[in-house]
Design a protein around this nucleic acid. Structure first.
Lengths: 338, 338
DNA sequence: CCTGGCACTCTGCGCGTGCGAGTGCCAATG
DNA sequence: CATTGGCACTCGCACGCGCAGAGTGCCAGG
């Protein structure tokens, strides 16, 4: 186990490096933080920390920089989450409250996160799976063509056009609409399949095929998790930390465009609180030199989607975690209200 | 007026520079293109072209590179639009046909454009203004709360929650829904205001306030052009031409995040065909070293939105213009079908 | 009007050098 | 035994230099 002072040294190294973006040496450390010991002592501690793999030197005889393992220790033991100040919280709330619809909420959230953290923000649209159905609407586009519109409690709207095997009258359509809504309104998606299972039986034989088709389209829409979309913003911030690693910005941009990758990334974080994945802890190769700070958010107590930021491993973890947590909290509130 | 040969020299310079990304000298020119004259002659022509402002040298005694004015001349007079090959066209069509809804169409279009041109793709969602109404749906969320869902012929769905001044019964709601649809279905947005003007008069006095509120929300939704959204993709391609100008990638990313800027940019192009804006022709400063190739697309004959790409001024104009035009054409087809 | 020749001007690159920051080790000290 | 001051050592980096190469402008001759 590392001594208390060595942990302090590690903390100091992380903080300084995050601030200056330059390898930090023993002398500078003792000057900036009053550790009460001489540079030589710090050097010994640094050697020990390096042996343990918490820090490394870019080249022989240069300052030290934290390794992924070092950041991990820092995040887990040495740093808390820095809460937002009251004015900041008010600003967040004000900014989000101006949103007119779900798209706008997500867009504003992205902008906000990117601005607060000065990093790349990623916000997942509220997922369908844990939501409840607010309403199902059926519209007749043509005799054998129906548009299915699904409205969820998070304000999301999904629509599909269904080609029916046989013409379907207005009366039948109204009947189906009524029956469908009385069964599934305010029900959780997960419960819907069993609730509509026997619906076709209530209809005339000639309409059963169409009813089944509509129902299966509905179920498809419900489970279509890969349809989960997300919005990203603040990519210009990549250039801020890119000047050190101009090479790495490319794969990061590529990874960010692969929505599948990002969704998996966010999905992996099961922790109920703020999750931090540092450097090589990210499965995707392009993100090996970045850290991802994410957290779930939701309209009620339950998380229905994730949001977070992607930045250099050298980031202000306490501040970023605080911002992410605060934004998630307020977005949840906004969603609950609407 | 420039002689025929000088134009050829300019064309050769543009083509070589686009290919090699390096300033091109007189000797290399005569070797790669058989102009039938000696380097010295070409030098004289180059001097003339430089006097006219079509080309410039980065530093004294280096090769020449085209200026914005040079590219302009190239695009206007020297180069045509390079049509896509048949296999390419098939690939485009196949790729777009798999789309399930409007979001998917736009997302696929962005991906496609970015891949084809290896540049940043921008696709504007079909605008509401020129569309027609397919259906208006009203749902009662609470006694004094109505959700308004607007479905357009381009497959776009807009929804708004309306807080009513007074409780509104199911019967009145159904009445309003029916009257509204019979008046506005398949009508152009522009015509809607006058069509619904006198609708409140058909209702009981107590409901008129609510009807008016719903209608004004509908009209708001219709004209809300600033709500126009767009999707971008292929930003990773910025790094390809960024290594020359690592400084310029930042403002470009910033400009791309400002949706307002991009919308204005696309909106400015009034030409019915493919529009090219080169370098400083772009009003936005961050895009001064980029060119924007854009074109309108639409489900019918009319353009309802724009799409295009943003790339370095040093780009393959004929190829890019061909790709943009082809994609726009096929997207239009897909939209018309759905 | 075209062409070959010539002197000139840059940029980029490889190389050697000096400087400075930072390290590791060691012996001395409380 | 942890801490400290001292000291030699190691690199990376910025700087200056010279050189080659590519490209130009200009001029005189066809």
């Amino acid at each position: 186990m590392l001594s208390e002072r060595r942990l302090q040294v590690l903390r100091a190294i992380v903080q300084d490096y995050v601030g200056t973006e330059e390898p930090v040496g023993s002398k500078a450390l003792t000057e900036r933080h009053n550790l009460g010991v001489s540079p030589a002592t710090v050097r010994n501690d640094m050697a020990a920390l390096e042996d343990e793999g918490y820090i490394a030197q870019p080249h022989t005889s240069a300052g030290r920089i934290p390794t992924d393992k070092g950041y991990r220790l820092f995040v887990d033991k040495l740093a808390g989450v820095k809460p937002m100040t009251a004015p900041e919280r008010r600003a967040i709330q004000n900014f989000l409250e101006g949103a007119v619809d779900l798209d706008d909420v997500v867009a504003r959230t992205v902008r906000l996160l990117a601005q607060l953290t000065r990093q790349v923000a990623v916000v997942q649209y509220p997922s369908l799976t844990r939501s409840t159905v607010r309403h199902v609407e059926l519209l007749s586009l043509a005799p054998a063509r129906v548009m299915l519109v699904l409205i969820t409690d998070t304000g999301r709207v999904e629509q599909r056009v269904v080609d029916c095997p046989a013409p379907f009258g207005e009366a039948s359509l109204a009947d189906l609409r009524a029956r469908l809504n009385s069964r599934v309104a305010n029900r959780r998606f997960a419960d819907v399949p069993s609730l509509v299972e026997d619906l076709p039986e209530a209809f005339e034989h000639e309409d059963r095929g169409t009813v089944s088709t509509v129902l299966s389209t509905l179920l498809e829409t419900l489970v279509e998790e890969n349809e989960e979309r997300l919005m990203i913003g603040g990519t210009a911030n990549l250039t801020r930390f890119g000047h050190d690693f101009p090479l790495t910005i490319r794969p990061v941009l590529e990874a960010l465009e692969e929505q599948v990758v990002l969704l998996k990334l966010l999905g992996e974080a099961k922790d109920p609180g703020v999750t931090v994945r540092i450097g090589h802890e990210n499965a995707h190769e392009g993100l090996n030199s970045t850290s991802v700070v994410s957290v779930g958010y939701g309209s009620g107590g339950e998380a229905v989607a994730k949001l977070g930021v992607v930045g250099p491993t050298r980031m202000d973890y306490p501040g970023t975690m605080g911002a992410v947590r605060a934004v998630a909290r307020y977005v949840g509130q906004i969603l609950a209200e609407s």
